[in-house]
Structures are given as C-alpha cells and as structure tokens.
C-alpha cells in the first residue's frame, strides 16, 4: 500500500517536473529556429509552450520578437504587453514595446493621474500581490508575538519594548495588507490590445449609436464589462464606451 502511494507521489512529481522540462526544451528549440530565421516554426513552438502549464515573461518577449521580425507589429505589441503583464518591470519588453508603438502611431494622451496615485501605483507594482501578502503576514505574526510578550512577560523591560513595538507592527501589517489589496486589484484588471484597423468606440452597444472616438491599432485598453458581442472598455485617456469584442485581443 505504502509503495503504491510512493509510486503515485513520484509519478506526480515527475509529471510536474517533466512539464517544466518540456517547456524549457521547447523554448530552447524555438530560440534555435529564430536564429536560423525560421520564424513561422519558432512562433508555432512558442505558442505551444503555455499548453505545458508554464509561461514566462521571456517567452512572450521572444514571441513578440518573432512577430516583429515578420513585420506583424500588432501581434508584437500584444506579446510585449503580455510579457509586461507577467512582469511589469521587465525592461527588454518595455523598450521593444516603445519602439513598436512609435511605428504604430498608437499614441493617446493618457489621463494625467494625481501624483500620489501615480506614485502609489508605481510602488505597488514593484512586487506581485503574493509578496505583499506574505510580508503582511510576517508583520501580523510579529504583532501577535509582541502582544503575547506584552501580556505575559514577567520582566518589565520586555513588557515595555513590546508595548512600543506592538502598534508599530500593527501599522506595518495594515500597510502591507493594503499594498497587497491594491496589487491584487491592479493584477485583476482586464486589459486587452486593440487589434483592428478601423475599430471605433461607440456610446452604446449598438452600431447605430454615436461613434466619435477611433481606437488606435495596438492601443492598450481596459475591459470593464463583457457581453455576448460587445464589451464596455476604458481608454487610457479615461474615455468609456463600447466596442465589438472582435476588435481586441485579451491579455
């Protein structure tokens, strides 16, 4: 019986490990194809990798390079954005995206954000929400320990230190918890890239309603609500409207 479980456990382990190994080898193979300028083949392999259950910012970055080499700028934008979604501070993708965007004329003046909001966003984006959450628990634990020391210690010096440390830890705990919450909210926003040339922003989910705004191809948009054929979206300048779902590809 024990043996059976062990075998099962071992199989699971090998299964997971094997998938990762597979992703790695596919990735290396695809890079090799890229260097030989077999772009279509490289792209097919890159697309294959997420099916193993693993992906990486570097994967989407390379896929973006392939698309860029083949002069499919919109796809390149899509992949670079995807890489940045996994790691917002991933520099190569950020730089490449800049270069492509310049060629696409997809510039819209972003809604100027209030400075503290901008700073907060930048700060929170430095780490994933998981990191913030773990840190908050660390301080929660520290707060509990200092409370325990304060309540139950015999020595007055311990009690005193704990008394001052406790509110400090509680504040830090709340701070990191809030950071985790903000990061979580930011990570769970739905973004997409406009992929059609003649896409427009409508006032209502109907082609007959007013359409004043044009969507730039390659533009990053936020999806607020999705219906059968239409989606409510927000542009980077803060304008809200509707567009058919076929006009964008979700990140």
């Amino acid at each position: 019986m024990k043996r059976k479980y062990f075998a099962l456990f071992f199989l699971c382990f090998v299964g997971v490990w094997g998938q990762r190994q597979k992703a790695d080898s596919l990735f290396r193979l695809a890079n090799e194809f890229f260097h030989r300028e077999a772009y279509a083949e490289a792209e097919r392999l890159y697309a294959e990798i997420p099916k193993t259950g693993y992906h990486a910012p570097e994967l989407y970055y390379n896929a973006g390079r392939v698309a860029y080499r083949q002069n499919r700028l919109l796809d390149a934008v899509y992949y670079y954005e995807k890489a940045l979604r996994l790691d917002p501070s991933y520099k190569p993708a950020g730089k490449s995206l800049d270069v492509v965007r310049r060629g696409l004329q997809a510039s819209r003046e972003a809604l100027p954000e209030i400075f503290y909001k901008k700073w907060w966003k930048k700060f929170v984006r430095m780490y994933r929400s998981d990191v913030w959450t773990y840190t908050s628990f660390l301080f929660l634990l520290a707060a509990l320990i200092s409370l325990a020391v304060f309540l139950h210690a015999r020595k007055v010096t311990y009690k005193k230190t704990a008394f001052y440390l406790f509110p400090f830890f509680v504040l830090l705990w709340l701070f990191f918890l809030f950071s985790a919450y903000s990061a979580y909210r930011l990570e769970h926003r739905n973004y997409a890239v406009a992929m059609k040339k003649e896409a427009r922003l409508y006032d209502e989910p109907s082609l007959n309603s007013g359409a004043q705004e044009k969507l730039f191809p390659g533009e990053k948009i936020e999806i607020l609500r999705e219906e059968d054929f239409w989606a409510q979206i927000r542009l980077s300048d803060g304008k809200i409207g509707w567009t058919p779902k076929e006009n964008y590809r979700k990140l």
Binding site: N31, H35, H55, E58, R65
Partner: peptide, 21 residues
Amino acid sequence: TSMSLATRPRWQSVDKEDFFN
C-alpha cells in the same frame, strides 16, 4: 546572440492562484 532574445525564462504556472483572498 545578435538579436538579443531572452534565454533564461522565469517559468511560472499558467493558472497560478493568488495567495491574497
């Protein structure tokens, strides 16, 4: 390489669940 492809992927699970919530 001449084209500066990324070579060291930091793999993460596709359907990774957030710890928060």
